[in-house]
Simulated scan of single mutants.
Amino acid sequence: MTRIFGPFVAIVTPFDASEDISEPALRRQVERQAKAGNGVFCAGTNGEFYALSFQEKLRVAEICVEAAAGRVPVLAHIGEISTHETIALGKLIEKLGVKAMSAITPSFIACSQSELIDHYRRVADALSKPVYLYNIPARTGNTIQPDTARILADHPNIIGIKDSAGSQESLDAFLAIARERKDFDVLVGADSLVLHGLQNGAAGCISGLGNISPVTLNAIHKSFVAGEAALAAKHQDHYSSLRKQLYAHGFPPALVKRALRLAMPEVGASRAPVLISDEVNEKVREISQRFAEAID
């Protein structure tokens, strides 16, 4: 099974004034990431999957695959609350040409570790494309424990985990599994830990801040691979500074999209009920002016 490496951006889903998907704007965002050398992760947390309908998620994946045109890989998020719906979405999305899929843990339901094991095994059994686990307990209320990930790593169609728990302790526990199991990869979901992950065996990352600073994200990876440790650290420091300043003001996906919108208005606003106050908007504007990177 082909392994997937490098930087991916959890791409925003642009909306027009009626809150409908803006397909031209989405295609331009994919083009922007492709020119920066980053892969695309679509309909994830920063893509507002929680606000998209079943059919919209399919359309977003279809557009991203078409726009990428084989130049960079496209990963798709398929996680739903129920196992049944996750499988149903995955079966349709895998036909569109994505390289792999990632499924967030079920939310609302407080799952035991045995329930998570059963959930992911059933999803992976049902799909032909490879599956990544997706750990983001702050948003779902469910945590994939390292021992659970170690058990699921035995499944031939589960190839790794996207860890967005946000702590080095969590990331290091999954990286330890990756060192034990050469067929199980870790994709870093915490923007402040991209370089730490690479230094300790991560295959790559899936970053939300890459919507704002795609060149810097790619430069962290490129410098690390080239053995330019000081330069990689410099890029990571810049990236971490963006994270610290931006995420201090509220819901990260909404802040990422607003910062990008201030630089590229066509991406639109987050879908309601998400709102950005005038005070926060001005703070984000200043951050966007300093960190947003244009790619022609």
Rank of each mutant, 00 (worst) to 15 (best):
D185Y: 05
H238A: 14
S277P: 05
E80Y: 01
F15A: 00
A178S: 15
V225L: 12
F15P: 09
R290A: 12
F41G: 10
R121N: 15
H235E: 14
D183T: 12
A103W: 02
R32D: 07
F5T: 14
D118G: 00
S128C: 03
H155G: 08
S112Y: 03
G97P: 01
N38Q: 08
K234Y: 04
A233M: 10
G189K: 04
I104C: 04
V256C: 12
Q245Y: 00
Q55G: 04
I177A: 10
G141E: 10
G6P: 12
A69S: 13
R139K: 08
A226D: 12
V60R: 10
A25L: 03
V60Y: 03
M101R: 06
R243Y: 07
I21M: 09
R290E: 13
I11A: 06
R59F: 04
C64D: 13
C64M: 12
R71M: 03
V194L: 14
F174W: 07
K234V: 00
F291T: 11
S270I: 07
L96A: 12
A100Y: 10
F184T: 03
K182D: 15
I104Q: 05
S170R: 13
I78A: 07
V9C: 15
A232R: 08
V225D: 08
P146V: 09
L217W: 08
S53Y: 03
M101T: 15
K91Y: 02
V194C: 11
A176Q: 13
G204Y: 04
Q29R: 06
I144Q: 01
D185T: 11
T45K: 02
E23L: 06
E19L: 08
T140R: 01
A173D: 13
L175K: 03
F54L: 05
F108S: 08
D183W: 00
E180V: 00
I161P: 06
K244L: 07
F108K: 04
D125E: 14
N211S: 09
D296P: 13
N142T: 10
K257N: 06
L187Q: 14
G90F: 02
L171P: 04
H119K: 08
A43M: 06
I177C: 09
L217D: 12
L92Q: 15
A269I: 00
L262D: 10
S277I: 06
V274C: 06
E80K: 11
C42M: 08
A226R: 11
V40H: 05
F8V: 00
V30K: 13
F184P: 00
C64W: 04
A165M: 06
K234N: 13
Q199G: 13
S114H: 11
T148I: 04
D185S: 15
